[in-house]
Simulated assay, not measured.
Amino acid sequence: MRIALVSVGLAAAVLLSACASNPQATDEVQDVQFFARNTDSMMHHEPKRSRNLQSDNPMQINQVGETWGLRKDREKVYEAVDTLEGVKVRRVIFNKDVVRVRVTVDEDIKSNDERMVTTQNIKTAIQRALPRYNIRVKIVD
Rank of each mutant, 00 (worst) to 15 (best):
Asn57Glu: 11
Asp31Ile: 13
Arg91Asp: 10
Tyr78Phe: 13
Thr119Gln: 06
Ala25Gly: 11
Lys123Cys: 03
Val29Ile: 14
Phe35Asn: 14
Asp113Cys: 03
Gly86Lys: 02
Trp68Phe: 14
Asp108Asn: 11
Asp108Tyr: 07
Ser55Met: 02
Lys76Cys: 06
Gly86Asp: 04
Ala125Met: 04
Asn121Val: 04
Arg91Ala: 12
Thr39His: 10
Gln60Asn: 13
Val77Gly: 00
Glu46Arg: 10
Val64Arg: 14
Asn52Phe: 05
Phe35Tyr: 12
Asn121Leu: 09
Asp31Asn: 15
Glu28Pro: 02
Ala80Ile: 01
Leu130Ala: 05
Val87Ile: 13
Lys110Gly: 09
Ile122Ala: 00
Glu66Lys: 06
Glu79Thr: 06
Asp113Leu: 10
Ser50Phe: 11
Gly86Tyr: 01
Val92Phe: 00
Asn57Leu: 04
Ala20Met: 15
Ala80Gly: 00
Val117Asn: 07
Phe94Asp: 04
Val64Thr: 13
Arg90Asp: 10
Lys72Gln: 15
Leu16Phe: 08
Val117Thr: 11
Val98Pro: 01
Arg51Gly: 01
Lys48Thr: 08
Glu46Asp: 14
Pro23Ile: 08
Met43Thr: 10
Glu66Cys: 05
Glu114Val: 01
Glu75Tyr: 08
Tyr78Val: 08
Asn95Cys: 05
Leu84His: 01
Ala20Thr: 14
Gln60Phe: 07
Asn22Pro: 05
Lys110Pro: 00
Ile61Val: 14
Arg100Gly: 04
Gln63Asn: 13
Asp106Gln: 15
Val105Ser: 03
Gly86His: 00
Phe34Asp: 14
Thr118Gln: 06
Ser111Tyr: 03
Val101Cys: 03
